[in-house]
Amino acid sequence: MNNTKTLLRNAGLEWQEGALETTAIVSPAKLKDTAEQLQREEWYLLDIVGVDYLEFTVKQPARFAVIYNLYHLGENARVFLKVFLEDGETLPSLYSVWKAANYLEREVYDLVGVVFDEHPDLRKVLTPEDLEGHPLRKDFPLGESPTLFNDGRFLDPSTFRAGVTGKDRGLSGYKGGERAGTSSAPLPPTLEVFTANVEKVKA
């Protein structure tokens, strides 16, 4: 862990305190320079994650984030470079830095809809050609079809599941537990509350 931080300090990166993984936030303008510098220091690109923070409970700097998963072989160090960007903004392609970015950027483009400039071949990679939209955006529906039973009864899966999400009431009217930051729903009953209630009833 300390090695990772030394390596990052050498590269002039600041990491987020308190995060479970070592995450450094980079601005889109500096991304390519940072990547080139890290590539010279023998960091390798393993994965790219695209995230749509549209419905996230904690306020984020922008709607989208692209997270680069980098690994340093000699020090066994791992860092996540996080770039925030709004809808419509583009990122420079890192294909010229790491060839591994080829498919990974295409995947982020396909599923989240982030455009990478100067990518040699930015096409859809997983979804069918005729699918409009980007499935992993939060405003893209899951696209469930209702279950049809023999006697003509329908079961809508999202209603069936509603109590679990905590967003709306399901068939039972149960609204689920607290969601951090949004809800003021009562906490789930703990042992202390439960025994206290029992004592109250006994008294």
Partner: peptide
Amino acid sequence: SGGMFNNYAVVQ
């Protein structure tokens, strides 16, 4: 029947 994958990608 689509099995456990009831989503946009799988033929049901």
